[in-house]
Design a protein around this nucleic acid. Structure first.
Lengths: 234, 234
DNA sequence: TGGTTGAGAAAAATCACACCTTTTCGAGAA
DNA sequence: TTCTCGAAAAGGTGTGATTTTTCTCAACCA
């Protein structure tokens, strides 16, 4: 499919725009600072064409805008397209990754209970079975303490749930959830073994969705995200 | 600041990329269809540079990708950057605007209760006063049946609330909420006069945030979005 | 004094064109 | 039939020239 079928965190060799994007997001380039195409050509040793292409990308991410007679103006954070995969990735790489991580988690906390309810209403037979299967897989892997594999199943579970609701805007948050879940495991924020309550809740969510019981689905997802919330507050 | 400091729905004279974007999102161009730079140069009477620039933008919105020797491949909906302001705008302009509207509303329903809670925790003094002021302004305008002005205040209220939570990803949804609220009024989906319960709930949310009472803020916002949910189900 | 206008210049935007690179596909050889 | 290799197609890159926008600043009028 699309060449960028990778997740948020994958590092692509995008060259100039990636480097500049990181500088803007990391704060090396302050809002209001002004660049010129000429300076970029010099700095990165690229032609005008490439410089312009890169700028075009950053512009569409809201990281800068170009103004005739002035140059390329770096924008403030509130102008960024914070839902663009590359912006999310660069934010997570920056010094303020902690803040980015918290924000992504808060988004997840807000969205997933509603997503569970929608999934209960709109899931297909196939999605239902897959969700049940993933939930029991999670139990198996979790109880065995195989954290890495557990995480993969966890990500798949949440992705599928978001997708099953049939709302493309929720589906698009799959990468966000994936990022948060992998981040949690890779930064050692997971207990040795997933809590039994978490495993139960995943099971219950899956069953709720299977039986099209919106309330069960939502409430158990709420349990899960409340746990995330508690963890964030530390 | 940025030249596109407008909301989602504003029409910018972006030329080629906007026209193409609308065609892809509207379905005139089906996923998998293939264009070439050459054909775009011909169709829009622009040079290669401009055609490439436009393509670059659409590519970063996930609406197509370019492949050597093949051309420009139109992508399917699940690849689109549905959070990009221009994509949201084009979706709302398309024939499937109803679906887009529902999805945006569902997102709003999911996010706002959490946003209210965050606002209660993080709002500044100034934001608090402004929210209280907006809530009473809404009551005044609502009771007077001045729907258009009411809507403006309503948008300002929700925008500020999202911002006050201090989460940039929530703040960025201000445009979404604005779009949904203006859409509701302009499509005649609002009652003659806003329901008193809605006015009360806005007041209560503002008071909750003012007193940093997360529960009051959340619960009353929940009342508001539950009403939106009910309206959607018709 | 103060606002308006106009000339000049800076920088992006566009155009045109030549050339490079990758990928595909078919013809012909093994 | 399969393999190889070459040509063609399409995007990618580099460059110079030209156009357009808009900022600056100074001159000019009220």
């Amino acid at each position: 499919m699309a060449p960028q079928a990778n997740g948020i965190a994958a590092v692509r060799p995008e060259g100039m725009s990636a480097a500049l994007g990181r500088e803007i997001i990391g704060g090396t380039l302050q809002p209001g600072e002004i660049l010129t195409l000429d300076s970029l050509q010099g700095r990165f040793g690229v032609s005008r064409t490439v410089a312009r292409d890169g700028v075009k990308v950053l512009e569409s991410l809201g990281l800068l805008y170009s103004k005739r007679r002035v140059g390329l103006v770096v924008t403030a954070e509130d102008q960024w397209n914070v839902y663009a995969p590359s912006v999310i990735a660069w934010r997570l790489e920056s010094e303020h990754s902690r803040k980015a991580y918290v924000e992504l988690s808060q988004l997840r906390i807000a969205v997933e209970p509603e997503a569970a309810e929608l999934a209960a209403q709109h899931r297909s037979e196939e999605q239902m079975e897959e969700l049940l299967a993933l939930a029991s897989k999670m139990r198996r892997l979790g109880e065995a303490g195989r954290l890495e594999e557990f995480m993969v199943a966890d990500v798949a579970f949440h992705r599928l749930l978001l997708e099953a609701g049939g709302n493309t805007m929720f589906t698009a948050l799959g990468d966000v959830v994936a990022e948060v879940l992998t981040g949690r495991t890779h930064h050692g924020l997971m207990p040795e073994r997933p809590k039994p309550e978490a495993l139960d809740a995943h099971d219950a969510v899956a069953r709720g969705i299977a039986q099209q019981d919106t309330r069960t689905a939502r409430e158990n997802m709420q349990l899960l995200v409340d746990e995330v919330r508690r963890a964030l507050e530390e």
